[in-house]
Nucleic acid binder design. Structure first.
Lengths: 161, 161
DNA sequence: TATTGTTATACTCTATAACTATA
DNA sequence: TATAGTTATAGAGTATAACAATA
């Protein structure tokens, strides 16, 4: 049972491959984030807010976090001058979150850097492979979004204008 | 400006696709982990220890963590009875980490569950698409491993014997 | 009463710096 | 001195539960 041989290249199954890829991408995100003195979560928040001005609960649902976690997250983003709370709604309970100009600027440059570094990761693939990969991943993401009724299309890290 | 592909207005480019996929996979891992009252990091630790008995520093390098972070991580794993420190080396400074029987059992069932749930995520692809995807991702991972001189081949979440 | 959001609390995770023990 | 590891400390991130304000 424990006589495992070393894994050969073609023995890395799709499950392990995807899990390891997710760690690799998260590591890239972490590196970019810390180069701007941010965390991955804040980077993600900035990306989301580029296209939206969500209420706290919407943000929580979108990020799969508890509302109290989002409270703290937005607290820290406000403290750094990256986002702010606004209360424009007719419903006095609702608080929306929006980027400050500084936050928007940072979101833009960070997303460019992410673009460069993630592209560097897939550079080992030929152009055709990258196109194939993008298509396959998109299919997975859209199927998952459909399953969960989530609005996937908002970019997360953004693309250049 | 990057002269990489010009992104269409409403398209999810490869960068965003990979980033979102990484969040999706991490979310699956988090769900599985918490179903066993674990965290993703501990799940990852268990997966790594299935095939290895690394020294603390080796573990730190492998997981991209500081040695002090690994100290705390292993502390918590020991407290839960999942792993333990052993000192078998001739070098009295070296501490190796190994799974307990409980830890090994948990690693096995958790990796099976991860297999099921990650497979569910890629179920929207036809068999041929999954094969293609696995090949492309493997290529990325091996290129990255070669770049960084890391031993990629140890599985991270494992597969069944 | 139900919903939206915040606060209090407790834990994990992480890094930096200072420390101990062995080489 | 150099290396392997731990400890002290501080901060981010997270969830649960209790709370306040509005609907």
């Amino acid at each position: 049972m424990n006589e495992r041989k070393a894994l050969e290249a073609d023995e890395l199954g799709i499950v392990d491959a995807l899990v390891q890829l997710s760690f690799l991408i998260q590591h890239v995100l972490g590196r970019v984030a810390s180069s701007y003195e941010l965390t991955v979560v804040h980077l993600r928040l900035l990306g989301i807010l580029r296209d939206r001005e969500p209420a706290m609960l919407e943000l929580a649902r979108y990020m799969n976090l508890d509302k109290s976690s989002v409270s703290g997250l937005v607290d820290r983003a406000e403290r750094r001058g990256l986002a702010r709370r606004v209360t424009t709604s007719a419903d006095g309970r609702v608080v929306r979150v929006t980027l400050t100009p500084d936050g928007r600027r940072l979101a833009t440059v960070a997303s460019e850097e992410i673009g460069r570094q993630v592209n560097a990761v897939v550079e080992s693939l030929p152009e055709a492979g990258r196109t194939q990969l993008a298509g396959l991943v998109r299919q997975i993401l859209f199927a998952d979004a459909a399953r969960h009724g989530v609005d996937l299309l908002a970019r997360v890290v953004g693309k250049d204008e």
